[in-house]
Write a protein that binds this DNA or RNA. Structure first.
Lengths: 163, 163
DNA sequence: TATATTTGCGTAGTTAACTACGTAAAAAGT
DNA sequence: ACTTTTTACGTAGTTAACTACGCAAATATA
């Protein structure tokens, strides 16, 4: 691997971009993996499978909150999973605005096969990151940038400089 | 901030997704920042400004390699910067396939103003991450996942499990 | 009880990266 | 010198997130 990485030279200024590059690269690898394995699922589906398996049926908004995604993203993902036959959807009997999603029997039948892949993926990541405090750092990043974001922090710095 | 984060509970399995979420969130904050400040630039442009300022004129492919992006992405970004009047583009005299990009005089005139913003952004990130080995971890992630990706690591694990 | 607000869901449009492929020029091979 | 391969760039199409907005149902308020 060459070392011509200009973004790396930029220090903290390049941090966000480097984060995105790695995230994009890993995401992309994930897609290639599924396509190589010739499996009928897509990258982010695992989190829906796991969530509904462990917590039972949930509405769209509940899912969005549980995984910290915007609800339109959840609709998009779960619609594709429904088309593939992995989810069932029912109106909530007490609140007709809500649509409650749950795993189909097909999903439950297929889960063991898919969990082997996810376990292998997890082991691979774990092996690569063991001893690096990576999960702790991610938690810190979440704490620091989910509540008071990058924007607010920059604006504070701009104000400080003026005084 | 509530602590209903299911992805966090997934350990290393949720690592990639958490990385993407933070990256997306920071990216989004960046866009909001520029829109709040009412400046005529977009998030990733800074890296092109900085690169051409420090290294001088470069071709599309050279830029792509320097910042580790696919060349169509560079074309996309630099076309917008050209439309905004920040870049000039010329054919390479010795190789007519190449298109060489450089900062315009307008860009050079505007740079000090923009660098104030970027400095503030960098300070904000630095303050949030100081003492956390964040840059070191990013470097490790790059080393581990740019060369031998997530896919290959998972496939190794799948093989191991079978034996 | 009537009105106003909040909540849940869906659609539409935006953003920013990527791969795949095509074309033309340059370089390498025979 | 001719042919093949590589390189550089551009376009088209895909993916996956987001915000903004609108509608309808439920809840709160007057």
């Amino acid at each position: 691997m060459e070392n011509n990485d200009f973004v790396k030279e930029l220090g903290y200024l390049g941090f966000t971009m480097r984060l995105k590059r790695i995230s994009d690269a890993m995401m992309h690898e994930g897609r290639r993996l599924y396509s190589d394995l010739d499996v009928d699922i897509e990258p982010n589906w695992y989190v829906i499978f796991k969530l509904l398996k462990s917590r039972g049926a949930k509405s769209v908004t509940e899912i969005a909150e549980s995984i910290r995604m915007a609800h339109p993203s959840v609709i998009h993902i779960t619609n594709k999973m429904m088309d593939a036959g992995y989810l069932i959807s029912e109106k909530d009997p007490t609140d007709s605005r809500k649509r409650v999603l749950d795993l189909s029997t097909r999903a439950i039948k297929k889960l063991p096969e898919y969990e082997k892949i996810w376990d292998a993926g997890e082991s691979g990541v774990e092996k690569a990151l063991k001893g690096l405090d990576a999960l702790e750092l991610i938690s810190t990043l979440e704490d620091k940038f989910f509540d008071k974001g990058f924007k607010e922090r920059t604006q504070e710095q701009l104000k400080n400089k003026k005084s």
